[in-house]
Design a protein around this nucleic acid. Sequence first.
DNA 1: GCTAAAAAACCGTCCAGACGGTATGTACTG
DNA 2: CAGTACATACCGTCTGGACGGTTTTTTAGC
Lengths: 199, 199
Amino acid sequence: MNRPQRKNNPDAVRARLIECAARLIVDDGLSALTLENVAREAAVSKGGLLHHYHGKNALIDGLFEEVVDWFDSQVENALEPEETAPARFSKAYLRVVAAIDMSVPEERRLAVLMLMLSSDPHYCARWNQWVEARLQRHAKTDLSPFARTLRLAADGLWLSDLGGGPDSSPSARREILAFLEDIDATGAMLANSPHEGGQ
Amino acid sequence: MNRPQRKNNPDAVRARLIECAARLIVDDGLSALTLENVAREAAVSKGGLLHHYHGKNALIDGLFEEVVDWFDSQVENALEPEETAPARFSKAYLRVVAAIDMSVPEERRLAVLMLMLSSDPHYCARWNQWVEARLQRHAKTDLSPFARTLRLAADGLWLSDLGGGPDSSPSARREILAFLEDIDATGAMLANSPHEGGQ
DNA sequence: GCTAAAAAACCGTCCAGACGGTATGTACTG
DNA sequence: CAGTACATACCGTCTGGACGGTTTTTTAGC
């Protein structure tokens, strides 16, 4: 995968740049995401950064795609085998979000996504594209109110995680998950309503 | 309360500054919140702005408090009369969020809150303080998993509103609300679990 | 009630620093 | 040698904020 014949392989530098950008955003807020800060954190000069990413937008775009791809693969892995399971996609969605441990740097990436989503309409639109594409693929299972509610709760959890809200503690999180599973078990009102997508 | 004997009462100017700052953030993004822009929108010079708010932080702080106070009063008004109703606070919380109409300028304020929350850890902490204070006040009714889930879903709805996600359409929203109410009606698993607050 | 002093409200300008981005130079690799 | 991967130095712009001046309102003395 990597090319150890190079002393400093540029892929690693790129990855480090993305990683540091993510860390900066999560820990110090969006305003801390400056080229200089990222470069310093990644132990690279600003010129070096701009060699890999032609401008700040390119860096952010790279970060965005990185995170979305990561989340996408995570959800894909969390999907149940039965393809007709109700709320199959939304459950996986929730599971991935709920499993995030903010103390693990790798998993803070999602917080980055949240930040970017709420700060820039452009990324918001791109995210919505992803969600709607997935929703379309799982239209048979994930348009029910229950599925929607699951995703909404996941988003709330996600947001709560970001700020360390009172519902992000492990115990509170466990309770919520258990509650949602109980509802699922009762099996009430899981019928897919024929609600047209989009707004 | 106000002093109408003044021709241009400064309270009105301050309110206008806050209002314009909010509008700028929501419509044009966080980066558009500059002293000059705010001053121009409010038909006040930059010096005038700095006379009322000693620095940008003071302005943002004022905005933050304004919005939190507004949300607080909205939730207070949405509270059911019966003080022992399960998830009393969380239901009001959800009701207020769900009732927000983003086309009404007044109600876009909440979007401001979201923006600030996600951009600055400091405001995140202050928001958590508010939530925890309210949670403590309503500890008897709003620590159940159901209540937590309600607030989480509200947050998700809130976020979805901001970005115009696929779950922010009126019909989808109605479905979700109805679903949540059905769960409430079944009355299952509403017992307050003795979960210690905080993290 | 009149007036002068004080305070508050407000304006326009200027400046230091930060930030994104460019241009140029250099070392390493193949 | 050519191209990649960086580093260094620098530039133009924007922004926050300081500062001094001007108008309006309030207060105080008489």
